[in-house]
Write a protein that binds this DNA or RNA. Structure first.
Length: 149
DNA sequence: CGTCTTTGACCGGCGC
DNA sequence: GCGCCGGTCAAAGACG
């Protein structure tokens, strides 16, 4: 169980001491929001033709944790419910889509396994938790406060 | 009986 | 316009 995934609550400070807070073998945090634009939001937002009504404007920050673990579901204190699984062309392994069970929280998680290294799992968090985690036994008390907006 | 996982279908965007 | 690709939904089954 990871007791250091509360860094999602602090996206503005992620990338500084991420690796130090994760107790796993190795984690590479690739917060692609270093620039003011997201992965592909530049072209869409610029050429907005009123088609932004799709579903989500993808304004949520996303954090890609490249964790080396044997398990897909890394219990970070939240309850995740799998709502989909697809096989993308980039990876030979299926990609799982999780969503926070809380109705008030629409944080999504995307777990993908590297084709080159089956031990590497890319956990992409999308959105931000608006509620404290249900860590009833974790010792991360006093730090992972409710960074709700 | 309720919750969650599984899995196919469906939909929207984009490239050709 | 069609096909591909990625993301989500929803029905049904499994599990507690």
């Amino acid at each position: 169980h990871i007791d250091a995934f509360d860094l999602m609550s602090l996206p503005d400070q992620v990338g500084t001491s991420v690796t130090a807070r994760v107790g796993y073998e190795g984690v590479t945090a690739c917060n692609g929001y270093s620039s003011n634009t997201w992965w592909r939001g530049s072209t869409m937002l610029a050429g907005e033709k009123g088609k932004m009504k799709v579903r989500r404007k993808m304004r949520e920050p996303r954090f890609c944790f490249q964790t080396r673990s044997d398990v897909d579901v890394l219990d970070d204190g939240y309850k995740w419910r799998k709502y989909g699984q697809k096989v993308v062309k980039n990876s030979l392994h299926p990609r799982s889509y999780f969503r926070c069970t809380h109705s008030n929280c629409r944080v999504k998680k995307r777990v993908e396994r590297l084709s080159t290294d089956c031990r590497m799992v890319i956990t992409t968090y999308e959105g931000r938790h608006t509620h404290p985690p249900c860590d009833d036994n974790s010792s991360s008390s006093g730090d992972n406060t409710t960074t709700c907006f």
